[in-house]
Design a protein around this nucleic acid. Structure first.
Lengths: 375, 375
DNA sequence: CGTAGAGATGTAAACGATTACATGCGGACC
DNA sequence: GGTCCGCATGTAATCGTTTACATCTCTACG
């Protein structure tokens, strides 16, 4: 099963076998033929670990994620996987790392096995960065980290948040609350900063109203309960991600508050769920697949040409207006046209859900009725 | 950066360094101390490829999937990842393999790099199985493949489908159509078989009405349009998965058909979306995370003890009754109580959605706390 | 016919670890 | 004091490849 067995069986040296297997040209057609036959008969497959040891190429990318739950990560992995396939690279996955120590351990566990690292660590700061393996090319995603060397790709959460607040103000809302993500999360921080700055710019008289969440639906629910009790009650809530916004919807529904009539709710990310809840969620669309894809490409480029200048890429989220923000026109609309996504090419499909009358069922009227009956 | 450098700097042999690094005991405390200091100072991390070559252990599992799209796969990966972490294993991911050749290539590209293979190939049959690397332990998931050696885990799609049809009949439906998955997909085939058998058993007079789909929402939409035109129009549609059921909902909504009043719709999988669409989808809950988790554990066991007798595990799906099937009682209910899942103990959250009046949120609330918090 | 040169093939040294075995040292026991 | 044993440490083989370099063969040309 090793190259030596093949060499013996074909009565050649291992070097010739290696040359044939790797497609080198300087081999006589006859010899090549004979070797190929033996390879086939013995079902020989090169041992990639051994090959990697000598070639120093593994064709494997390490992907380090904090967690795997939710639409965000599955989309991200999809993008990463797609790009990796294109580039003939494999992906070694490591996830659910709460803190820097755990993550450092995970990265150590990849040393010598991966050619590059893709790190999504929105909670890591520069101080903890030192633990990152210095001699393997790294690309950061959505991170505050900047080592001055590595490339990074990120969602422009700050501008996204400002755009959302601007929209809410344009819709006529004047008391706009914000539900934050985890305190140490970079995106959460940027979204809060955007909220505060735009509020100060657009509604100088308004005071920020901030409730802490942690990106989970449960925390959004709790925040919604709290905001519903607040006096004066806000007329709009901007949650730092869609899951929390959905939690808010649930809380308001349970308390008999109508969205958007009594209170508007918006989120961030545009996860698939956002278009399907009722009322459909106005949110900022983030190109998650592209983020993953771009990160892999960038990493591959850095690996191929180690001297390459680093690149800092920011993805601009797009406002997606649906029902929950209480705009005049109830049809959802994408303010910036959405990019074409994979799989969106089925001729059979109706237009994007976003641009249609809400479905599967319109509206909240029936829901309100049901709720009334229930109580 | 290699073990030799460390040995030199610590003025010992590589053997001693290796012993210290691997936690062997037969080393003098003084020597150990000295070596550890050097390791720390030089930031030495063992080269895992080299180590694997000699130890023949990589601690990596290869995971081969046909595609990465949809809630199903992200849940599956979550389960796989969780179990892998517990067992200190890494996951080498390879996905989007349409046919057997492509998959065989992917598996070849893992040879010598993984200790075991997790294969989800619902489209592969036994004939194509020969390409699977014979000398690496393999566990199949949801597959018709049976090589007589490997373990396998699967959803009992057949019984699930029968249970669903039985439920629809119990709800009073008499003309029940079925939207299938891809023709060569094992689960799709089993679900269709269950549909036909149970229909024959429960409603001997009824003729099967089958429309072909491919597990995508788009194909469900098309199937819904077709079924709406069929005369006599069916009063219930059982789609082979939730995505297609959601497509049906959209089609019926577009055509002004009320669900479930005019026509009932049910799915299969209980993806997170199922509880969130309106009307909420009656479906068969499949324990996707457990499937992935179980597969990893089984594989790890096989690797640890190669002689282990193979295990064939079938997961029984559970009927989850929500609104879309038109049962008398509109409250959602789980006919078989769901097993306790990790993290199901969040005090903050309201009661399970399934047991309450429908609201714009999920029945998975308790799981929410595990969600994407670190983004 | 001798020889240079091209091209095929073989030999052996890496790659970076682990570990069986050899060596050397000190203490215990007679 | 000599021998034996246990323990720390070192030497070198090994894992399965790739590839630089050596060698060998054959053709072409003077």
């Amino acid at each position: 099963m090793t190259i030596i067995d093949v060499a013996r069986a074909a009565r050649v040296s291992v070097a010739s076998v290696s040359r044939v297997v790797n497609g080198h040209t300087n081999v006589t057609p006859g010899t090549r033929q004979r070797i190929l036959e033996v390879v086939d008969r013995l079902q020989y497959v090169p041992h990639l670990t051994a090959r990697s040891l000598i070639t120093k190429r593994t064709h494997v990318l390490g992907v380090v994620l904090p967690d795997l739950y939710g639409g965000f990560f599955s989309e991200l992995i999809r993008g990463i996987d797609a790009a990796a396939r294109e580039l003939q690279l494999h992906v070694l996955l490591s996830s659910s790392h709460g803190d820097a120590k755990e993550m450092a351990a995970a990265i150590r566990a990849m040393h010598g096995r991966v050619e590059g690292l893709l790190v999504l660590a929105p909670e890591l700061d520069a101080a903890e960065l030192g633990k990152i393996d210095a001699d393997v090319p790294t690309v950061f995603m959505n991170s505050r980290v900047d080592d001055g060397v590595s490339s990074s790709l990120a969602i422009d959460s700050y501008r996204g948040a400002r755009a959302m607040i601007r929209h809410l103000v344009a819709c006529g809302h004047r008391t706009i609350a914000h539900v934050t993500g985890p305190a140490d999360n970079f995106d959460a921080h940027e979204r809060e900063r955007g909220y505060r700055d735009e509020l100060a710019a657009s509604l100088p008289a308004a005071r920020p109203l901030v409730v802490r969440g942690d990106f989970t639906e449960a925390s959004g629910y709790a925040a919604g309960q709290e905001l519903a009790r607040t006096r004066p009650r806000p007329d709009a809530v901007f949650a730092a991600n869609d899951m929390m916004a959905i939690g808010c919807l649930a809380a308001f529904d349970a308390l008999g508050l109508a969205v958007p009539a009594d209170i508007a709710v918006t989120g961030f990310d545009d996860i698939p769920l956002a278009a399907l809840v009722r009322p459909a969620l106005t949110t900022m669309r983030v190109q998650i697949v592209e983020l993953g894809r771009g990160a892999v490409r960038q990493l591959a480029a850095t690996i191929a040409a180690p001297g390459t200048k680093r690149a800092i890429t920011r993805f601009q989220p797009e406002l997606v207006v649906r029902e929950s923000c209480g705009t005049a026109d109830r049809r959802a609309q994408v303010v910036n046209p959405p990019p074409v996504r994979d799989g969106d090419h089925d001729a059979q499909m109706p237009p994007r859900h976003d641009s249609r009358t809400p479905r599967p069922r319109t509206g909240h009227a029936p829901r309100a009725r049901r709720r009334a009956r229930h109580r």
